[in-house]
């Protein structure tokens, strides 16, 4: 017993040291966000000579609208995208992983192909499409594609998870007389909870961090998302605004950290508590 508690303590120490090493850059950023902006790059120590909150105060209102507006916009797009991906990708993945039909391999290949092309050559035709539809300065170009299973990464992810589930599960349900929809709904979905949570986490965080799409589609400041707003804080020519950018970057990390802490708990509760009695 003593040996095992000792080994546990050792593991904790090792982990804490490792965590500190990993997040050192973030700690430096945190400290810097409390320094006067002009000292951040000239006095780089971890212990500031002077502490100020002005970066937070200035950053909050720097773009003529309170920063909460951009947090709200990002939240809206994040939640909308999560819903869209959960809905559309799970349907697609189930069909591709479990249903027998001639085109399934072709479709999967096609899906994978869409993530292999760098988006810089796709973005202009896509922009033209959405501009023609008059959807610039709306969230439609950012959200609609999520409801149409265009995030192939998650389709692939869910396909892999479904394929790792024993077939016997469906077969048992099928013997009980369940059709594909019942099996999807009552057997597969509950069992793929870890995959759904993973999709939720990644979709939320990736859309939260997405920069290029919102930059192009949202030109009005009131519609900006967090990354576009953050980029607007720093003047690329003069490097001014680093302090406010750090402050607002850290502030905007808070919602996604909370989201992650909350969501990752559900990864734990996968198959162990569901399906199999």
């Amino acid at each position: 017993m003593a040996a095992s508690s000792l080994s546990r303590a050792v593991r904790h120490v090792v982990l804490v040291v490792f965590v500190l090493l990993m997040i050192y850059p973030l700690l430096w950023m945190l400290v810097s966000s409390f320094k006067p902006s002009n000292l951040i790059l000239s006095q780089t120590g971890l212990f500031p000579a002077e502490i100020t909150l002005e970066n937070y105060a200035d950053g909050w209102d720097a773009l003529g609208s309170p920063f909460s507006l951009f947090l709200g916009n990002s939240l809206l797009i994040g939640v909308g995208s999560v819903i869209g991906n959960l809905f559309s990708c799970s349907l697609t993945a189930y069909a591709l992983a479990r249903l027998n039909f001639r085109m399934s391999k072709v479709y999967l290949a096609l899906t994978l192909m869409t993530i292999m092309l760098p988006f810089h050559v796709l973005v202009i035709p896509q922009y033209i499409l959405f501009a023609e539809l008059g959807w610039i300065n709306t969230y439609i170009p950012l959200l609609l594609p999520k409801f149409l299973a265009t995030d192939a990464v998650f389709i692939f992810l869910m396909v892999q998870f479904i394929r790792s589930l024993p077939r016997e599960l469906d077969q048992a349900a099928m013997i009980d007389g369940a059709g594909p929809f019942r099996i999807f709904w009552s057997v597969i979905l509950p069992l793929m909870q870890p995959a759904l949570i993973t999709t939720t986490i990644f979709t939320f965080i990736w859309t939260w961090n997405d920069y290029f799409g919102p930059l192009l589609y949202l030109t009005r400041t009131e519609l900006y998302t967090v990354p576009v707003a953050l980029k607007s804080l720093v003047d690329t020519e003069t490097q001014s605004g680093i302090g406010t950018m750090f402050a607002m970057s850290l502030l905007s990390l808070v919602p996604i950290v909370l989201f992650f802490v909350f969501a990752q708990r559900y990864i734990i509760k996968g198959i162990a508590t569901t399906g199999i009695k």
Binding site: V79, I83, G134, I136, T138, Y139, I140, L143, L144
Partner: peptide, 19 residues
């Protein structure tokens, strides 16, 4: 909720835009 929010956003999208 997703279906509803998309519908709402689509409507919001019809309001005057900067384009």
């Amino acid at each position: 909720m997703g279906a509803l929010s998309v519908a709402a956003l689509a409507l919001a999208g019809c309001s005057p835009s900067g384009s």
